[in-house]
Nucleic acid binder design. Structure first.
Lengths: 240, 240
DNA sequence: TACAGTTACTGAACATGTTCAAAATATTTC
DNA sequence: GAAATATTTTGAACATGTTCAGTAACTGTA
């Protein structure tokens, strides 16, 4: 992820000009109706130049999403250091700040899900090629969890669970046609309220065995980073 | 969904010949590497003929998936009427029979998720264009639930929840590289065991208020078929 | 500065999904 | 059965994402 080609200041300039122009045009006219030739022309570059910096049209959106992730991490850190928030508050900050960033770009977001069903594709949202993205995203949620007092097993599951939840929320967000996507905001609040209540419940030592069986299940499925036999979700890239 | 053009027996014949040939070639060589020209040639038809019956390449896979759904309903009904199964057994039958049908076609399955992030696309897995598919799938799960004694609110949520779970399992299945996807099978068993245990727990009248808040949340989000303000997931098609 | 090597860019050519006007074939109507 | 109509089939033409062999511009070295 991140900047691929940027050996020279000039290259960096061209690349970011290309990227920002592309995003502007995408926002104006949507993903589908803008051709790579349009993009190149709008940026005053040649078709080949666009492909020199971005391996595909979707890769441009991925590059944008890389920026989004960085911005997300920044905002959450800021929000947390500014104010003294409880777990609910920190999780709300994590989810809502992400939505804030993406508010105007719902149409672009769809591209991130395009290759979800194709494990081998480098841009598959669940594939090896986007592993770093996932890990970065989970580390944002780890920040939100902070040093909250939680049993170890819950602590192991929570970041992955939150990442998965957040992916689901993004999908809901894309489909949400309510004014300014207020519906998604309410859903986030509702889900997080329930989640926090749920967490303080499952913390109780009586429920340790129940938690254990869930943990075992997820571990066996390779859905936890620490698993011995990880699922593709966490596996290293095939060709490093 | 289902057969689009089939006014004439001849048309029906051509269409199903095209479809079965396409699936054979797709299975042999994968989705990507087979062009529409290849398909037409393999079926002894012209390129235009293929497009006369299927609006797009992905639509062929959708047509296949329609058949899968029909077969799924058939198999579950058969399994249930043959033997006296408990809820766990019926749910297992529902999930595993689906996987049985799809076992050899994991590569094709990915296409179903391609437009998940594009609400307007007719093949979006969550869009208006595939509403019937979802409802058919949910009705299969309703069959599995049967007349199991359950509180009304749980009964309202369960089919949607099972459908969502089943979509997730399909994604896991696509990514599962274990021998014969045994891992997915174990995951299904594990999840369903937990689910059934969970269900008998939440049935307790003491938990009615908790269930109520979940129900309200989902209803507000439009994620239940009965909602007043339904989400796109359940909304009618835009152009009927 | 001249040269070598690297980086950045160019645009023609290609591959392939999709469209569509026209032709072929089948069906209905009289 | 002939004309009219509807259905099915054809393949050339188009649009657009992507590749790639080449060219230009730059950077460091002697």
């Amino acid at each position: 992820m991140f900047n691929k080609t940027a050996s020279t200041p000039k290259a960096h300039l061209t690349r970011s000009h290309l990227l920002s122009t592309a995003l502007r045009v995408f926002r104006e006219r949507g993903l589908e109706s803008v051709t790579m030739r349009d993009l190149a022309a709008a940026a005053g570059a040649s078709l080949g130049a666009a492909y020199y910096y971005f391996p595909s049209k979707e890769a441009i959106i991925q590059a944008y999403y890389d920026d989004v992730q960085a911005e997300h991490a920044r905002r959450l850190t800021a929000a947390i250091s500014e104010t003294k928030l409880d777990l609910k508050g920190r999780l709300c900050a994590a989810f809502h700040s992400k939505l804030d960033i993406l508010q105007g770009d719902r149409r672009l977001l769809g591209a991130l899900f395009r290759y979800t069903g194709e494990p081998q594709h480098p841009l598959s949202a669940l594939g090896a090629g986007t592993r770093q993205n996932r890990q970065q995203s989970m580390s944002v949620f780890k920040t939100a969890i902070g040093d909250e007092r939680l049993p170890d097993d819950v602590r192991a599951i929570l970041p992955v669970a939150l990442w998965g939840l957040h992916m689901g929320i993004l999908l809901y967000f894309i489909y949400d046609e309510s004014a300014e996507q207020q519906r998604t905001r309410r859903l986030v609040d509702g889900v997080l309220t329930l989640l926090v209540r749920f967490l303080s419940l499952v913390k109780l030592p009586i429920l340790k065995p129940v938690r254990g069986s869930v943990l075992t299940l997820l571990r066996d499925a390779g859905l936890l980073p620490e698993s011995d036999s990880p699922h593709l979700l966490f596996s290293k890239e095939l060709q490093p």
